[in-house]
Protein backbone atom coordinates (compact mmCIF):
# COMPACT_ATOMS: atom_id res chain seq x y z
CA UNK A 1 0.00 0.00 0.00
CA UNK A 2 1.32 3.49 -0.80
CA UNK A 3 2.16 5.90 1.97
CA UNK A 4 0.32 9.18 2.31
CA UNK A 5 1.21 12.26 4.34
CA UNK A 6 -1.54 14.43 5.79
CA UNK A 7 -0.30 17.95 6.47
CA UNK A 8 -2.48 20.47 8.29
CA UNK A 9 -2.57 24.09 7.13
CA UNK A 10 -4.63 26.57 9.11
CA UNK A 11 -4.56 29.76 11.10
CA UNK A 12 -2.46 28.25 13.89
CA UNK A 13 0.27 27.32 11.41
CA UNK A 14 1.35 24.38 9.34
CA UNK A 15 1.75 20.96 10.89
CA UNK A 16 3.88 18.68 8.73
CA UNK A 17 3.18 14.96 8.83
CA UNK A 18 6.62 13.40 8.88
CA UNK A 19 5.45 9.87 9.60
CA UNK A 20 2.73 9.20 7.02
CA UNK A 21 0.33 6.31 6.95
CA UNK A 22 -0.09 3.37 4.55
CA UNK A 23 -3.48 3.48 2.86
CA UNK A 24 -5.21 1.82 -0.09
CA UNK A 25 -5.57 4.98 -2.18
CA UNK A 26 -6.48 8.67 -2.35
CA UNK A 27 -10.15 8.11 -1.40
CA UNK A 28 -8.97 6.40 1.78
CA UNK A 29 -6.52 9.24 2.49
CA UNK A 30 -9.30 11.78 1.97
CA UNK A 31 -11.47 9.85 4.44
CA UNK A 32 -8.63 10.01 6.99
CA UNK A 33 -8.29 13.75 6.39
CA UNK A 34 -12.02 14.28 6.93
CA UNK A 35 -11.93 12.31 10.19
CA UNK A 36 -8.93 14.34 11.32
CA UNK A 37 -10.60 17.66 10.54
CA UNK A 38 -13.75 16.63 12.41
CA UNK A 39 -11.70 15.56 15.41
CA UNK A 40 -9.77 18.86 15.55
CA UNK A 41 -12.79 21.10 14.98
CA UNK A 42 -14.90 19.16 17.50
CA UNK A 43 -12.21 19.77 20.13
CA UNK A 44 -12.08 23.48 19.34
CA UNK A 45 -15.88 23.67 19.38
CA UNK A 46 -15.77 22.58 23.04
CA UNK A 47 -14.00 25.86 23.73
CA UNK A 48 -16.63 27.79 21.76
CA UNK A 49 -14.62 28.41 18.62
CA UNK A 50 -15.06 26.98 15.12
CA UNK A 51 -12.41 27.86 12.55
CA UNK A 52 -12.94 26.24 9.16
CA UNK A 53 -10.35 28.27 7.26
CA UNK A 54 -7.71 25.54 7.08
CA UNK A 55 -7.08 22.54 4.87
CA UNK A 56 -5.37 19.20 5.02
CA UNK A 57 -2.92 18.73 2.17
CA UNK A 58 -2.29 15.15 1.18
CA UNK A 59 1.06 14.32 -0.38
CA UNK A 60 2.83 11.14 -1.42
CA UNK A 61 6.26 9.82 -0.41
CA UNK A 62 8.05 12.00 -2.97
CA UNK A 63 6.43 15.15 -1.54
CA UNK A 64 4.06 15.65 -4.46
CA UNK A 65 0.73 17.23 -3.47
CA UNK A 66 -2.16 14.95 -4.42
CA UNK A 67 -5.16 16.65 -2.90
CA UNK A 68 -6.16 19.47 -0.57
CA UNK A 69 -9.19 18.91 1.65
CA UNK A 70 -10.55 22.23 2.99
CA UNK A 71 -11.83 22.02 6.55
CA UNK A 72 -15.34 23.06 5.48
CA UNK A 73 -15.62 19.98 3.23
CA UNK A 74 -15.75 17.84 6.35
CA UNK A 75 -19.11 19.31 7.37
CA UNK A 76 -22.64 19.82 6.18
CA UNK A 77 -22.96 23.39 7.42
CA UNK A 78 -26.24 25.06 8.31
CA UNK A 79 -26.02 28.54 9.73
CA UNK A 80 -29.59 29.83 9.50
CA UNK A 81 -33.16 28.68 10.15
Amino acid sequence: MPRYYLHIQNGIGDVRDEEGVDLSGIPDARERAIEGIRSIVAEEARDGRIDLTGAIVISNATGETLLAVPFHEAFDLRLDG
Partner: peptide, 18 residues
Protein backbone atom coordinates in the same frame (compact mmCIF):
# COMPACT_ATOMS: atom_id res chain seq x y z
CA UNK B 1 3.27 5.44 15.37
CA UNK B 2 1.00 8.48 15.58
CA UNK B 3 -1.87 6.24 14.55
CA UNK B 4 -1.16 3.93 17.49
CA UNK B 5 -0.98 6.87 19.89
CA UNK B 6 -4.32 8.01 18.43
CA UNK B 7 -5.74 4.56 19.22
CA UNK B 8 -4.64 4.97 22.85
CA UNK B 9 -6.14 8.42 23.35
CA UNK B 10 -9.30 8.19 21.23
CA UNK B 11 -8.25 10.79 18.65
CA UNK B 12 -7.30 10.62 14.97
CA UNK B 13 -3.68 10.47 13.81
CA UNK B 14 -4.07 13.90 12.17
CA UNK B 15 -5.21 15.36 15.48
CA UNK B 16 -2.40 13.64 17.40
CA UNK B 17 0.08 15.10 14.94
CA UNK B 18 -1.19 18.59 15.72
Amino acid sequence: TQTEIAECVGLTSVHVNR
